[in-house]
Design a binder for these strands. Structure first.
Length: 292
DNA sequence: GGACAGGTGCGGT
DNA sequence: ACCGCACCTGTC
């Protein structure tokens, strides 16, 4: 009796359409290019591929909807934060000031993703003093070398895999001087319960994260915002400094800028940071999209 | 060719 | 606590 044996299929399985969602407040490019995620790419057919942990999805925009193709509907429904009403947030933030109205209008398609904590820790250690293109390249190489096989490519490496990797091999991925940071933090995570972070408030979790090698104030805030879903933090990088000086105040240290925005925006601080960051990258002085 | 890029660690005040 | 500086690597 003949039986189809999937071991011998050469092409990967076609992804099913898991769900679609109104694109009023869910824009693929806005969400992927606002600095929160590095593991994505535009495919030849125009779709966007998104990787998270050992999961994979493809996205396309069509007829006022975002179509999400994946084998794991529940994971990516949560990943794209689709139970949150962004219309309410955009309206509230837009009412704050003319600049916030512009920024929110520019980034209203952004959704703050529910990403994996460990993945955020290592990704943002790599991001320090680095540019997006190179960050993506390093992460891709790291997944290729240290990640487990999945049906649709490599998974993001576990802390164990990074800890077990010789520092010299980490450097060969292009991590530069961050090699020792990745190694030290990976080894620290071997006997560290990340669940303790979820029980702490943002301030205390931040202090804890600052004890990780390669995690400074900016990276800690990114981990809090993207890995621990703390909306009440405001990561300050070079772009937000430009925003601060252009539209708010002049000449303060980074942490004072962060405190200023946290006091101004409260629980919406993280989302406001994404709107302002994206706005500045898109339209600000020396915006990468406008410089050839 | 130096300045800069989603900064951080470290040593000196 | 608060500076100033070095630092991998790629790009403009």
């Amino acid at each position: 009796m003949l039986r189809y044996d999937r071991k011998f299929t050469l092409t990967k399985m076609k992804l099913p359409l898991a769900f679609n969602y109104s694109s009023d407040y869910f824009n693929i490019v806005d969400t992927l290019e606002c600095g929160q995620i590095f593991r994505y790419k535009k495919l030849d057919d125009g779709r966007y591929a998104v990787y998270s942990r050992d999961k994979y999805a493809e996205l396309e925009s069509s007829d006022g909807k975002v179509n999400v193709y994946t084998d794991d509907k529940e994971y990516f429904w949560h990943f794209f934060d689709l139970d949150t009403d962004y219309a309410v947030k955009v309206e509230r933030i837009s009412a704050l000031s003319p600049i916030m109205q512009k920024a929110a209008d520019c980034g209203k398609g952004i959704r703050i993703l529910n990403q994996d904590l460990t993945e955020m820790i290592f990704s943002f250690i790599i991001s320090a003093n680095n540019n997006i293109k190179r960050i993506q390249l390093i992460i891709e190489r790291m997944c290729e070398k240290l990640g487990e096989d999945t049906a649709y490519g490599k998974a993001f490496p576990t802390a164990e895999a990074i800890a077990a990797c010789p520092v010299e091999a980490l450097k060969q991925l292009g991590t530069g001087y961050r090699d020792v940071y990745l190694s030290a933090t990976a080894r620290k995570l071997m006997d560290y319960d990340l669940d303790t972070l979820t029980r702490l408030d943002s301030q205390d979790a931040r202090k804890e994260l600052l004890s990780f090698k390669g995690v400074g104030p900016k990276v800690a805030d990114c981990i809090l915002l993207f890995g621990l879903r703390r909306g009440d933090v405001f990561p300050v990088d070079t772009w937000l400094k430009k925003v601060y000086h252009a539209y708010f105040e002049q000449g303060h240290a980074d942490r004072e800028i962060s405190t200023y925005f946290c006091n101004l925006f409260g629980g919406d601080a993280g989302l406001c940071q994404q709107y302002l960051f994206y706005f500045q990258r898109k339209y600000g002085q020396n915006a990468p999209n406008t410089v050839k």
